[in-house]
Amino acid sequence: MKSAGIIIGSIIVSFAFNLFLIPHGIMSSGISGLSIILSMLTSINTGIFNFLLNFPLLILGYMKLGRKFIFYTILSVITISIALYAIPVIKLAEDSILSSIFGGAIVGLGIGIIFRSSGSSGGFDIIGMLLARRKDFPMGTLLFAMNSIVILLSGFLFSWDAALNTLVSIFVLGKVIDKVHTHHVKLTLMIITRKGEEVKQHLLGNVYRGVTVVDSVGGFSNEKSNVIITVISRYELTEVKTLIEEIDPDAFVNITETLEVMGLFHKRQH
């Protein structure tokens, strides 16, 4: 299922490049943007540069983010590279501003789907994932900050009109990613259950978040139970709800959005 999400998101990104961004000289973001620049300068296909530039970052991702993540990322990089090579470059819209807006939005949608499928499209996304895991910053904001180098390069090498259109595209891309990929949004769960120990073990074993367990007594029934309190990211909510329903369908769960988290949120990696 996640592999399908990776492939679909990658193909969406490739269509946005070849139909909206590349025909107007809009650089998009990160390694993909650098690949477009090199392709314009050398006439070598964008997909080839996309694969070559991603290779060292894939090694970094394997070392820091794990085997499963890097497998999905490699799948995305290969899919994007093949799709960029196979999909013809067609100017779908004549207006460059509209193309930068819609192209950025479609790329953001595709990358957001890839992130939600536990992968990345490679390049700056890997660096962004590393920073987001340490600091819990919005992914789109991080990518927008790092992609300033692409904007400057497109301005100096081509034209500042292209640079400004690239800026618009990257800004829209970041906003869409933050709407689709909600890893930085935190939720607090208060779970009242008579199977506290079992729920706790499953949460610790499958979600990798810390939990606090409090003994409680029902105000009406006087039955003993446990209150389990934990903080998760929004994209983990479906998995957690499924775990709770499997163990204790009668559990009472209160879910609230968390404004800010202080202290250790991520489990330390040994």
Rank of each mutant, 00 (worst) to 15 (best):
I6L: 10
I7H: 09
I7V: 15
I11P: 05
V13K: 12
F15T: 04
F15Y: 14
A16H: 03
N18S: 11
N18G: 05
L19F: 14
F20H: 00
I22R: 00
H24E: 13
I26F: 01
I26T: 06
S28M: 08
L34I: 11
S35A: 12
S35C: 01
I37R: 02
I44K: 01
N45L: 03
I48R: 10
I48N: 04
F49H: 08
F49A: 01
F49W: 15
F51N: 00
L52W: 08
L52G: 10
L52P: 08
L53R: 03
L53G: 01
K64Y: 05
F69W: 03
F71I: 04
F71Y: 09
T73C: 02
I74L: 13
V77E: 02
V77I: 12
I80M: 10
I80A: 07
S81V: 02
L84F: 11
Y85D: 15
Y85K: 14
I87L: 10
P88Y: 05
K91F: 03
E94R: 02
E94H: 01
D95L: 12
D95E: 14
I97C: 04
I97S: 00
F102P: 00
V107G: 12
G108I: 01
F115T: 14
R116G: 06
S117T: 04
S118H: 10
S118N: 15
S121D: 03
G122Y: 01
I126G: 00
G128K: 02
M129D: 01
L130C: 02
A132V: 10
D136N: 15
G140T: 04
T141M: 13
L142K: 07
A145I: 11
N147Q: 13
N147R: 10
I149Y: 06
I149N: 08
L153G: 08
L153W: 01
S154D: 02
F156T: 12
F156A: 15
F156V: 14
L157N: 07
L157P: 10
F158Q: 06
S159L: 02
D161F: 03
A162T: 11
L164H: 03
T166W: 00
V168G: 00
S169Y: 02
L173R: 06
L173P: 00
V176R: 08
V176I: 15
I177A: 07
K179D: 00
K179R: 07
H183G: 13
H183K: 10
H184M: 07
V185H: 12
T188A: 15
T188H: 14
M190D: 08
I191Q: 00
I191Y: 06
K195N: 13
K195S: 11
K195L: 06
K195H: 13
G196W: 00
G196P: 01
V199S: 07
H202Q: 13
L203E: 01
G205S: 12
Y208G: 01
V211H: 03
V213S: 08
V214T: 14
S216N: 11
G218Y: 06
F220V: 08
F220A: 11
N222V: 09
N226I: 05
V227R: 13
I228W: 00
I228G: 07
I232N: 13
S233P: 01
Y235R: 04
E236A: 06
E236F: 04
V240K: 06
I244E: 11
E245K: 15
E246W: 10
I247N: 07
P249F: 04
F252I: 11
T256F: 08
V261M: 12
V261I: 14
L264K: 15
F265Q: 10
F265N: 05
F265T: 01
F265A: 09
H266L: 04
Q269W: 02
